[in-house]
Design a protein around this nucleic acid. Structure first.
Lengths: 190, 190
DNA sequence: GTCTATAGGGTGATAGAC
DNA sequence: GTCTATCACCCTATAGAC
């Protein structure tokens, strides 16, 4: 069942991310990842020579998915800011599976980052920077407002990635939209 | 050197938090914690019968420090909202030491939470709730604005707890102050 | 209260068969 | 490409000396 190397590598990265998100980085052992992907530990280590290499595979996936998302964000009808804030509030994890592939990979990356892996931190930082720049364009170059909006998204993300829900998400999104629009019409303050 | 049980327990919890923050949860082994606190592994396990008990000790410390901080936040001259946002941006960790005791314990708790520990998540959620309620009081009961402000703080926190700096923190704080003040004078929107 | 020694289980990685 | 052994290491926790 599947001798295609690329497909097997993909399955392994998927399984890795899923386990890290669902059960924590500690549970994502080579054996558990391999089993979830339907191969043996030795099979995994043929494709990824070490656990570090597996992390690299995850980061590669992250960059690819993030690039796609950046395109969606750029062309989002509601605008980048609202898109960012709304998609920052994911749902149902910690045991359950996260449906959105990018969310899953980001959460996995951040969990790994908290273990002190510098590669994961800088990979995330780069993507975060790209997102903010896109928001900044929408708000007419208002650097501070852009950061404000991004922080709101990141704050929502922090809660939801721990399984803490945000009951009034729609209201928050509406308020962000207000902020962004007021930056176009009125002044800004800075 | 130190036969006072309470003092030794405190040193152990301190060392535990410090290692989790500085080197990741994985590095915080019983042996490493014991060594950092100047006792042996067996000595640690006399005071805390298991690693779970050590986590409980950390959570106890968290609640105590958080209660003190809540009092500072309530009486802060700049108001709870600005206090929250400003203190959310910590500096210099991941290898270095975090100077503020509460920040250190919170970061440690959140790292542990990401390993799937439900106790840590609910402990943090309770504290987070208390902070927001205090902000809500300041903004005259505007639930959504309170959440917005808190999200901004949490977003700053997320970055800084990964070692990513926020260059324009002062501007962000100023903008938050603006938002809070406008809720007093003008309307609010919702 | 604090120590050493050790049991018992799990983890990343290698070697070599198929 | 994928598997099964196997190694060396590290971790939590217990037992019992001091």
């Amino acid at each position: 069942m599947a001798r295609d190397p690329a497909a097997t590598r993909d399955r392994l990265v998927d399984a890795f991310a899923e386990i890290v998100v669902g059960s924590g980085a500690r549970s994502a052992t080579l054996e558990a990842v391999a089993a979830a992907a339907g191969v043996s530990k030795g099979g995994l280590l043929y494709h990824f020579g070490s656990k570090d290499a597996l992390v690299d595979g995850l980061l590669e996936r992250l960059r690819k998915l993030a690039a796609e998302d950046l395109e969606q964000m750029r062309t989002a009808p509601e605008g980048p800011a609202v898109y960012y804030v709304r998609t920052s509030a994911t749902e149902g994890l910690q045991g359950d599976e996260v449906v959105d592939p990018l969310s899953r990979v980001i959460i996995a990356t951040m969990r790994l980052a908290q273990e002190g892996d510098t590669r994961t931190v800088s990979a995330y930082a780069a993507i975060n920077e790209a997102w903010r720049q896109l928001i900044e364009v929408q708000v007419g170059g208002d650097r501070v407002l852009a950061r404000l909006v991004q922080c709101i998204g990141d704050g929502l993300w922090a809660s939801s990635s721990m399984g803490i829900p945000t009951p009034d998400l729609d209201d928050v999104v509406a308020r962000v939209q207000q902020l962004v629009e007021s930056s176009r019409h009125g002044d800004g303050g800075a």
